[in-house]
Write a protein that binds this DNA or RNA. Sequence first.
DNA 1: TGCCTTTCATGATAGGCGTCATAGATTCCA
DNA 2: TGGAATCTATGACGCCTATCATGAAAGGCA
Lengths: 216, 216
Amino acid sequence: MQDFLAGVEPFKRLSLSERQRLSAVSRERRYSKGEMVFRTGDPSDAICIVKSGRVHLMKFLEGGQASTTCVMTSGDTFCCLPALDQKPYPVDAIAATDSIVVRIPTSSFQTLLEKNPVFLKDSLCLFCDRLRQVEHKSCMAYDSVEQRLAQALLTLSKKFGSTIPLTKHELAELASTTVETTIRVLSQLKKQGIIKSSRGSTTIAKPQLLEDLASS
Amino acid sequence: MQDFLAGVEPFKRLSLSERQRLSAVSRERRYSKGEMVFRTGDPSDAICIVKSGRVHLMKFLEGGQASTTCVMTSGDTFCCLPALDQKPYPVDAIAATDSIVVRIPTSSFQTLLEKNPVFLKDSLCLFCDRLRQVEHKSCMAYDSVEQRLAQALLTLSKKFGSTIPLTKHELAELASTTVETTIRVLSQLKKQGIIKSSRGSTTIAKPQLLEDLASS
DNA sequence: TGCCTTTCATGATAGGCGTCATAGATTCCA
DNA sequence: TGGAATCTATGACGCCTATCATGAAAGGCA
């Protein structure tokens, strides 16, 4: 397992012995598709790293709508926030596919933060990235669904490459819209040759045109 | 000036001598209403603290719309992000009123981060708060203008109390909508007795009802 | 004081998008 | 293998909200 951690932020720059100690106290856990990995208000006894599969960070609104804020795949760390400041983390994490998640006890994480300034700095940088990402989406309410979907697809393509293995429903949750509208908009993009679409996946055919749409 | 820093996160827990050294290298600068304090892509030679006045963190979209992501008032620190990871900060900061801003050189900030683990930890906590705030807004696109305005007013009331000294135009930018719609929605809330409204300010009369609206 | 800008306000109109209904195509699973 | 569930797709309808236009009231400035 320390091999796995060697490729994961913010653990990359830990010493071998530190990683080994961390591995010794960590636990792997399997989640089936649809299972909750973390629930709003849970006591945060561990920080989580996706080892395989796909986990979505989501918000559920009172109206019943679901909004996905972040798609986590192999090597992505989440639920660090409450481990740092002991405050609740207001999101739900759900396994979007069968997944394996590595759980590192909060206490071990905190010990490392206190003892290892380099680790603290790397954690800080990881947060800066996350903050930048989220702030980037903060003016989303102004954008049309087409723009929001274009942005979502482009963001996802950094993770998955040009073919994005998400259903239309999952894309809808990322763009904070409905399945029907998502399908309609993507159909238009398909007609224009900008994307290809099939059951359970969408392929970006013309990234440049999609970027134009995203920022227009 | 070290007295001022003593009340500002993340500087509160610095020693007196550390604050004095920081004060010695800091500079105060006045900005007139409408002036740019920080521009997207600026080299980040300093982190900023509002000493008096009001500074808005904004995004300008290609369509010409402006969206305010954050309202900073006395004691609020901003532009820390690029000082931490040397990456660009994709927002514009504009003085919404005549303002005084304290500028601390990035290099001094970085030195402190490296030498003082407590300061690093406090900075980290400050970021956690910011991240939580921004993530909270991430499903905004689902909400109606009424909900977004209600949320904006409630957030602002934590800073300003029940009377919020912003124009309808500024509220519109916070809710990512137009002035006209803002005025129409607020007129309705006024008729229902939930708020009072006058030139340049809005007063929350019934916070509970507003919260119900915000989360419905 | 008078002009000009800003703020607030209201109406008409059109388009975007949510909602509801229907249905074919795939996949899953008992 | 057959039925249920999921995914994709399309149409009709109506509301929300952006846009454009107009105008009154308040404040700033010469």
